[in-house]
Amino acid sequence: MSVLGIYNELNTYLVIGAVLFGMGIYGMVTRRTLIGMLIASELVLAGSSVNFMAFNRFTAPDPVTGQVFALFIMAIAAAEAAIGLSIIIAVYGHFKSIDAEDTAQLKG
């Protein structure tokens, strides 16, 4: 199997999904702003979507299930982004900062 034929292998996509997931985890740990953490969480969701789509293409008996699952992941990610960003804007209006270290108190 040469390097040009790896697009037809399940393992290729699983490794790509794992790499995306790992980059998202790295971003979540190292980022200091809330928006940066949100961007990293989008990477995590993309990695899991790639995994679902890979299993859907190569092993699943019904090739619709994984695609529908990926669509629902997209819908949930859009809802999460909208809610998260409005929370971030509300937090910025209150604390004048979106640094995760500054916004440590729950009191409004």
Partner: peptide, 14 residues
């Protein structure tokens, strides 16, 4: 620490 966590998770999944 972030790099170690990410490398561990990625390596484990791989």
């Amino acid at each position: 620490l972030g790099f170690a966590t990410a490398a561990l998770i990625t390596g484990g999944f791989t």
